[in-house]
């Protein structure tokens, strides 16, 4: 349950309490010896400005993906209007959690790749499967140089044969695909909700239902993930192409909070 980006790629340590809320930069055993920026060139890095969970799943018309617009600096909500969903070509969307500067570097690489591909003018373009393959090679290559790009990334879209595509790649180069995927805290909190709402009904869920499911999950995450925001964007990829919504404000109600029992001194 240690989902904090600073802990990714580190040996699991059962001795620490993963549920505790230490300041993000000073997690026990993870703190740098000196200021991150004083070492000159650093190979093994740690994420600085981070984005939290990405959620995505299959639905009738294609792929839906969501991310909030927050980029945190430790526990500080530093940038509140960062877009973490990035369109690539005509039928792919890439969403990233983890280090935002590494993600923006990847965005530039992907944009350059798209331009190179376009200038070839050979009638081919890169679909989601190709983008994912490219990203997984970059991520695995960087981890093998012990200089990872500190992200967990989702790639979603429609392949040129009309099939849906949704896959994951992270800082270790680990990849997989599934009908419902989430990164970070979402893998623990949203995946159970998504699997029960989506699995087996991928071909039935309409766009309206998909947005509803996504909004519910983002709301639950906002309630429980301290590094999240109540402003998020939804991307869809259908035969019509990529659509990334304007930021949506979550409607929340905290009335339930007073009924929560069982924490700290409140036992009854």
């Amino acid at each position: 349950m240690d989902h904090f980006p600073t802990s990714w790629g580190r040996p699991r340590n059962e001795a620490i309490d993963a549920f505790n809320t230490y300041p993000l930069h000073q997690r026990p055993g993870h703190a740098p010896k000196t200021d991150t920026f004083t070492d000159g060139v650093q190979r093994t890095q740690q994420p600085i400005v981070t984005g939290t969970s990405i959620l995505a799943f299959h639905y009738k018309d294609g792929i839906i993906m969501a991310a909030d617009t927050l980029a945190s600096y430790g526990s500080l909500a530093r940038f509140k209007t960062i877009q973490r969903l990035h369109p690539v070509g005509a039928r792919t969307v890439v969403g990233a959690s983890g280090d935002m500067s590494d993600f923006q570097y990847l965005q530039n690489q992907l944009d350059q790749l798209t331009i190179d591909e376009f200038t070839e003018n050979d009638g081919h373009d890169l679909g989601p499967a190709e983008i994912h393959e490219y990203l997984s090679r970059v991520m695995y290559g960087r981890r093998s140089k012990m200089n990872p790009l500190w992200n967990a990334i989702l790639v979603g879209g429609k392949k040129d044969n009309g099939e849906r595509f949704l896959a994951y790649v992270d800082l270790l180069g680990t990849t997989y695909s599934a009908a419902t995927i989430a990164t970070g805290y979402g893998a623990h909190i949203a995946i159970p909700l998504l699997r029960s709402a989506v699995e087996g009904r991928e071909n039935e869920i309409t766009e309206e239902q998909a947005r509803e499911i996504m909004t519910t999950c983002m709301r639950v995450l906002f309630y429980r993930d301290a590094r999240s925001l109540d402003k998020f964007q939804i991307a869809t990829v259908t035969d019509a192409g990529v659509n990334i919504s304007e930021p949506i404000k979550l409607e929340t109600s905290w009335n339930f909070a007073e009924n929560i029992r069982g924490y700290g001194a409140q036992t009854q």
Partner: peptide, 22 residues
């Protein structure tokens, strides 16, 4: 540490390029 202190323990910080996938 549970009391909020974490300065004293030896600081080990290394990227681990491996994981286990079962």
């Amino acid at each position: 540490m549970p009391d909020g202190s974490f300065a004293q323990q030896p600081q080990q910080r290394q990227f681990n390029p491996y994981t286990e996938n079962g």
